[in-house]
Computed example of a mutant assay.
Amino acid sequence: MRLKAVNPKDLSLETLRLFTGRTPLLTAGDRTACNTMTIGWGGLGELWQKPVCTVYVRQSRYTFQFMESHDYFTVSVLPESHRDVLLLCGTKSGRDTDKISSCGLTVCYGAGNAPFFDEAELVLVCRKLYTQDMNQDCVIDHGAAAPFYKEGDWHRMYIGEIVEAYHA
Rank of each mutant, 00 (worst) to 15 (best):
R2D: 11
L3Q: 01
A5R: 09
A5K: 08
N7M: 01
P8I: 02
K9N: 12
K9R: 09
D10R: 02
D10A: 06
T15R: 13
T15P: 00
L16Q: 14
L16P: 04
R17Q: 14
R17E: 14
L18A: 10
F19I: 14
F19L: 10
T20F: 11
G21K: 13
L25S: 00
L26W: 01
D30G: 05
D30I: 04
R31L: 01
T32P: 06
C34G: 03
N35A: 08
N35M: 05
L44F: 12
G45Q: 01
Q49R: 06
Q49Y: 08
K50T: 05
P51M: 01
P51I: 00
V52P: 04
T54W: 08
T54D: 11
V55E: 06
V55I: 15
Y56S: 14
Y56Q: 11
V57Y: 02
R58P: 03
Q59T: 10
R61A: 05
T63L: 10
Q65D: 12
F66K: 09
D71H: 11
V75A: 13
V75L: 15
V75F: 11
S76M: 03
V77R: 14
V77I: 12
L78Y: 07
L78D: 02
E80S: 15
S81T: 08
H82I: 07
D84W: 02
C89T: 03
K92D: 03
D96K: 06
D96W: 08
D98P: 05
K99W: 01
G104D: 04
G104N: 03
L105T: 06
T106K: 03
T106I: 03
Y109N: 04
A111T: 04
G112K: 09
N113K: 12
A114P: 05
P115M: 10
F116M: 15
F117H: 02
F117M: 02
D118H: 09
E119S: 13
E119F: 13
A120K: 12
V123R: 04
V123G: 05
L124Y: 08
C126E: 09
R127N: 00
K128T: 11
L129E: 06
Y130H: 14
Q132S: 13
Q132A: 14
N135I: 05
D137G: 14
C138H: 13
D141L: 12
A146T: 08
A146S: 12
P147H: 04
K150V: 11
E151F: 02
E151H: 03
D153H: 00
R156H: 11
M157K: 06
Y158C: 09
I159H: 10
G160R: 04
E161M: 14
E161D: 06
V163R: 00
E164Y: 00
A165H: 07
Y166P: 01
Y166W: 10
H167N: 06
A168L: 11
